[in-house]
Write a protein that binds this DNA or RNA. Structure first.
Lengths: 329, 329
DNA sequence: CTGAAAGCGCTAACAT
DNA sequence: ATGTTAGCGCTTTCAG
């Protein structure tokens, strides 16, 4: 900046004004400064700028997901990034890999870089460690899952209700032995889905068989193995509810076409499998967009009480969820 | 920091030493400082820290992809982020959406935040605008695609050869009317794949029919429409080469099972479609990991001449690419 | 319309 | 083992 000022024969203050497009600079001077900037390839240092303008925004937000490679998270992140970019912000991204320690590391890296706010898909566990940062003005929005003990804007879907409907749908097609396969039951969404499953069975007067519930399936192959185990049992399920997209893919590896199935979360090619897969679809783009809008509202001064936005889900019937319970099964 | 110093009854310098775990602080004093830090919830300001330690690293890298929601890019980004995190770095992410102007905006946002380096999946067009930043020490690595006119480390696969092999595979199964469907032909990877297609036909002595080549298919539905168009023609193709994963999904929407197909890029459930889809698989995780390693080597002083790492691809035969050319088609 | 001085939070370099 | 001084690159504040 000093170099630019020298080359243009002005003070650094004038350069600063030009760079920031502030009024009060003679057009002649401004042009000379512009030329010097281009000549030297000068670019404002956002780091130094930020330091002086205390209380101002870094125009940087943090985005914490479980794993960017997951299609749901990827679509979610993409949508949030879109909104951020439209607002001239840049996004720091990090993955928790469902590990609280790692999540804390990532969040510490965010706050030490003075992000204006962050969107979290929180892992299980207390998030009270965020309170000091929040007290100093870092805004937090949760998406997809609630963070226990954190009273912040949250964007979710009604997982419980959606699963209750899905299981009810299977019951309506004659199923009574319905398996539930999910990722770690500590994950908020999965706990909710599991509850919906339990409630639906209770409503239908079907006793819960713990042998039909498998948790902790973190990769597709876990789910495939679980299916194999279930089917080898003396009284196998006639229908399966896959708790998320990853489990769904694993289930599809081994599930015989005659066994009914509904997956939580839509996925690419679900309609090209045989039979086409009935799913509970949720909209990751809407979740990401909504969360980002909520965050920016907070960043720009919204101080209303935290609210929860519940986005709709939709049961998309494609065939796999409408298979009848096999006679004798 | 001043507050911490006051509370602990020491100078800010001592606080700085404790925060940075530097030697030369009495254990007694250190403990007092630690207590003050916790009491006040103090966290070092990475922004201010960075300013003074000029020439030091921000421990932040930029990652520019075409679109995070694309499974290939998501897996790539996830792998790169993993490496960065292991090294205590944080990742700024941005999407170009295949738009040079937007790419430049994102890159400017990166450099103004003084990233130590960045990994780019570059869009088409000159990237000479990066030269000034590179001259001032911002390291750049390209992945997946080359950036014309930019002499930097690059991680790619041999798209041309891979497609030549794939088309040869179709020819070996009797196909002579092979369609090529791709995204915008300005994208480097697609140009390469297209060249491989042309070369393979030439090797087989098959004249190139421009009517069998469709470009500019950006979303799945574009590809689906293109397939419909091709099949309605008087002399339709007996085999289709899908230029990327997105096109592949679109093709699968409408392609009759009897038409052979090979897709560039593996995708989830490719083996569950009927017939299972033969693909040219590349490894996005390896690409992301390699690119990140190259970048960190540069950041930590590697000044050897830029090199290109070419990662292997693999033709995975699953059925759709081994269908015979229908007699009379 | 333009500039000089001060200082943001931190740390390198040099005392003590 | 601890403190003092100065300054990173920029912008706020106040004076011309």
């Amino acid at each position: 900046m000093k170099d630019v000022a020298r080359l243009a024969g002005v003070s650094t203050m004038t350069v600063s004004r030009v760079v920031n497009g502030e009024a009060g600079v003679g057009p002649e001077t401004a042009a000379r400064v512009e030329r010097a900037i281009r000549g030297l390839g000068y670019q404002r240092d956002a780091v130094a700028r930020q330091l002086r303008r205390k209380g101002q925004l870094t125009q940087t937000i943090g985005l914490l997901v479980d794993n960017v490679a997951d299609p749901f998270m990827a679509a979610f992140a993409s949508a949030a990034e879109d909104v951020a970019r439209q607002r001239g912000n840049v996004v720091l991204i990090g993955s928790s890999r469902d590990d609280l320690r790692r999540e804390r590391e990532v969040i510490a890296a965010f706050t030490s870089r003075r992000v204006d706010g962050m969107i979290l898909i929180p892992v299980e566990g207390s998030h009270r460690f965020l309170l000091p940062s929040m007290a100093t003005g870092t805004h937090v929005v949760c998406a997809d899952r609630r963070a226990p003990g954190l009273d912040v804007d949250t964007v979710i879907v009604d997982n419980r209700d959606a699963v209750r409907e899905a299981v009810g749908h299977l019951v309506a097609h004659g199923h009574r032995r319905i398996a539930f396969l999910g990722d770690r039951k500590e994950i908020w969404t999965l706990a909710e889905r599991r509850t919906g499953y339990t409630e639906a069975l209770a409503e239908a007067g079907i006793p819960l068989d713990p042998g039909l519930v498998r948790h902790g399936l973190r990769v597709a192959s876990d789910a495939a193995a679980a299916v194999t185990g279930l089917l080898a049992a003396p009284d196998p399920p006639t229908a399966v509810l896959a708790g998320n997209d990853i489990v769904a893919v694993g289930v599809l590896e081994t599930l015989p076409p005659a066994v009914a199935m509904i997956a939580f979360g839509d996925f690419v090619l679900a309609d090209r499998i045989s039979p086409p897969v009935t799913v509970v679809s949720q909209d990751p783009v809407a979740i990401g967009t909504t969360a980002a809008h909520l965050l920016f509202a907070r960043i720009h001064g919204d101080t209303s009480p935290p609210r929860t936005v519940t986005l709709p889900t939709r049961l998309i019937t494609r065939g796999s969820g409408e298979l009848p319970a096999r006679v004798g099964a």
